[in-house]
Nucleic acid binder design. Structure first.
Ligand SMILES: [Mn+2]
Ligand SMILES: [Mn+2]
Ligand SMILES: [Mn+2]
Ligand SMILES: [Mn+2]
Lengths: 218, 218
DNA sequence: AAATATTTTTAGACTTGTCTAAAAATATTT
DNA sequence: AAATATTTTTAGACAAGTCTAAAAATATTT
């Protein structure tokens, strides 16, 4: 049995280690989970004893196959719930994450199976992130950061890297949503800001923004 | 802040005390929650200190106004989720309770408000129990136990008293659901069993069954 | 290579909620 | 009204998860 707390640690390790590829440090987990390094040390030892993680003292931690499966399952639940909140309950994309953080821990195979069907088997969540299937397989589309697009490229917005409420509200304010088409009309070498055109209106976004917006070339 | 455990105790006190009217004993709570009386003593003291319950040693416990509000809110959430599971996710009425036990603890005002709207403001859950409104008001319909109906009464099934999976499956097996019309064709004084007719087919149900099925006279 | 700084672990304490065993209060029989 | 049975509370222990302070290991500077 995996406790709610363990699930959250496993999820953090998964995300910080880029889908569980890389080693994750104690401090990184502590920062992500807003807890103390000492607490992380204890928990990481426990996850290791339970077979969810590989851990050697002072050497950081990775997830085992079993741990990754748990992580992917939580991610699947989290993103399905985000779709539900967005599409069925009219939540805006900056409101869904916090509620999904709670809903992702509900335990019921059937619930998720039926929810998936009810939502018509969505492939991506409202932030453009892929939803793992029942077997944990993740279908990733090829996307680039807007900061990597070239002048005159026409792009379609397909996801966000930062999905904080602040960033999402910024995008809303400027009329940028998933599916929005935009053209790169200038790149300023000095500060790496980018001029984009949406619906014939042109404006400048900073490199920080461009670095957090995923697009695909049209 | 009310913990998940506290919520469950408050809910138990609410139900055992008939919507918080009566005093509830330590042992009754322990039995309901499948825990030990000593644990209940501790918790009840804590609920009392926090202002959710009135409690005097050895005298049992009742909910305060604040406690009742918390209880009613959990019941509201529980029943709305049951409607969701039943109507949108095709759960049968014997499967919904356990999942709703988890979902009732999700904290988000907006979630419940939107869920309520999405379900088109249902007044009763799939077991026939009333759903409290946003202000905690409960609209109860006048229903009687089938055991109290008279011979030749034509009744419509409007709820269950026992909503255990076993009982609900029994009802399914005999074609009894909410809204089912049935006629009482005989009452046997010896064992208080009742003969009923549904769709021109007649069969006998024990007093135990009749005592757990709510009906209204057609 | 030493000295210093940073990261990580350990030791011990605290909180929440649980349990067992024993004591105290209340209820029921005789 | 005593004796007995039942219910309830208390005392002390335990598990999970957290924290602070100090020690140990690793990394970075000089
Ligand atoms: Mn999210
Ligand atoms: Mn998301
Ligand atoms: Mn229920
Ligand atoms: Mn119900």
């Amino acid at each position: 049995m995996v406790t709610l707390t363990e699930e959250n640690y496993i999820k953090a390790i998964y995300h910080l280690g880029k889908q569980g590829e890389n080693n994750v440090s104690t401090n990184a987990i502590a920062k992500e989970m807003e807890t103390k390094a000492s607490s992380v040390s204890d928990m990481v030892k426990k996850l290791s004893e339970k077979g969810y993680a590989d851990y050697k003292k002072y050497q950081g931690v990775t997830l085992t196959k079993e741990g990754k499966l748990i992580a992917v399952n939580i991610v699947r639940k989290h993103r399905l719930w985000e779709v539900f909140l967005s599409e069925k309950l009219n939540f805006s994309w900056d409101e869904i994450h916090d509620v999904a953080e709670q809903l992702e821990h509900i335990k019921s195979e059937k619930l998720i199976k039926q929810l998936d069907a009810f939502l018509d088997y969505p492939s991506h969540d409202p932030h453009g992130d892929p939803i793992p299937d029942e077997n944990g397989r993740i279908q990733s589309i090829d996307k680039i950061l807007l900061s990597q697009a070239q002048v005159n490229n026409i792009c379609i917005c397909v996801g966000v890297k930062d999905s904080s409420s602040e960033f999402l509200k910024y995008l809303d304010k400027h009329g940028i949503a998933l599916g929005t088409e935009l053209k790169v009309t200038n790149k300023e070498p000095f500060d790496n800001s980018i001029t984009i055109t949406i619906n014939h209106s042109e404006f400048i976004i900073s490199n920080i923004i461009a670095n957090n917006l995923f697009v695909k070339l049209a």
